[in-house]
């Protein structure tokens, strides 16, 4: 499995996402640029210029038409994927930490940082797809997360887009109703450290969270029941669920501030493949020389990509042997595409 190394960022990666077809990869980093790449050969297709600070988050709609990004310059921007034009700028009082699309591409969410006396806010905007430059400045709903407890760090729309699932600084996971803005469910005991990433399964019935408490877990979308847990020995920054094969991919590593004090191997910067059901590690992929900040998997399960503190994105197309291998014999659960 020879990786394609994408060198286009000057600072560490913050989030990467594949589009629905898996032929494009969008990457956001602590420098001000957002890049889009061809996943097949690693060629850079273009950049989205306009932000004036760290771009914390990036999300693309299911038709690869519009891109939304959130940045430390206190703005959220909507872009035309094809032309690279900025269509809309929303301004806030604090940095935008997370954005996400609803599954029908009609809404986006944004999480703004709790800082300078500002509360942790979750806002939901409706997107005008017909006239993209004409977007409303007022959200259709605004949820003050701080009134329910610790600030939110990550979020996504549950299938059907009725609720939003959030991960919080304390390890709490909660569900908020999109219409009423109320917290309808929460679980405090699953994680004991900041939730660093949340990604939905291909079929939308469960999701994975990664946390600084060195674990990643699978939850039922419906009930928030903890289904599976993966305990590693390093803080995790990202996790995703691979389609086609029964694996989850976890990434993390020693805190960036400690990296220079130890060797590359001691930093535990590998991407780890765990068996989704048996909760056993099946393999590791080395290569980064900084902690992995973000992982994304090809929607058809043919590849995965990792973005790290070292400023590189590595795209790995799975070998034939990955699909053939049966580390636990003939035991094969159903897998989703």
């Amino acid at each position: 499995m020879k990786p394609i190394i994408l060198q286009g960022h000057e600072r560490s990666l913050t989030q990467i996402v594949f589009n629905a077809e898996g032929d494009l990869l969008f990457s956001a980093s602590k420098d001000v640029g957002v890049n889009v790449w061809f996943t097949s050969n690693g060629e850079r297709l273009g950049t989205f210029n306009g932000h004036n600070g760290t771009v914390w988050t990036v999300a693309v709609d299911s038709q690869s038409r519009y891109l939304v990004t959130g940045s430390a310059d206190n703005t959220m921007r909507l872009w035309d994927v094809q032309t690279g034009k900025c269509l809309k700028v929303w301004e806030f009082l604090t940095a935008v930490k997370r954005v996400a699309w609803s599954e029908d591409d009609s809404m986006i969410l944004s999480i703004t940082e709790q800082r300078q006396g500002q509360q942790s806010m979750l806002r939901i905007y409706s997107i005008n797809r017909e006239d993209p430059t004409n977007q409303s400045n007022t959200p259709i709903n605004e949820i003050n997360i701080s009134t329910y407890g610790p600030k939110a760090t990550v979020a996504l729309f549950a299938p059907l887009s009725d609720v939003i699932i959030t991960g919080h600084e304390s390890g709490k996971i909660a569900k908020y109703d999109v219409k009423t803005g109320e917290e309808i469910q929460r679980t405090n005991e699953s994680h004991f450290g900041e939730i660093t990433d949340i990604q939905l399964s291909p079929d939308g019935t469960y999701f994975i969270t990664s946390s600084k408490d060195k674990t990643a877990k699978l939850f039922d979308v419906e009930t928030l029941d903890e289904m599976k847990g993966y305990v590693t020995e390093t803080p995790l920054n990202s996790a995703c669920i691979a389609p086609l094969r029964p694996y989850v991919i976890l990434g993390g590593g020693q805190e960036a501030m400690n990296v220079t004090t130890t060797g590359q191997r001691a930093g535990k910067f590998e991407a780890r493949f765990w068996h989704k059901l048996f909760e056993e590690e099946v393999g590791r992929v080395r290569g980064h020389f900084g902690p992995i900040n973000t992982l994304a998997v090809h929607p058809q399960g043919k590849a995965y990509a990792s973005g790290a503190e070292d400023g590189f994105v590595r795209v790995h197309w799975f070998d034939e042997s990955y699909f053939r291998s049966r580390p636990f014999g003939d035991l094969e659960p159903e897998v989703e595409v």
Partner: peptide, 19 residues
Amino acid sequence: RQRDIAEWDAWRSRNVSKL
């Protein structure tokens, strides 16, 4: 492991059909 798989598959098919 077989139990694990059976449990998982049952749970998933239930949820998938519900969705």
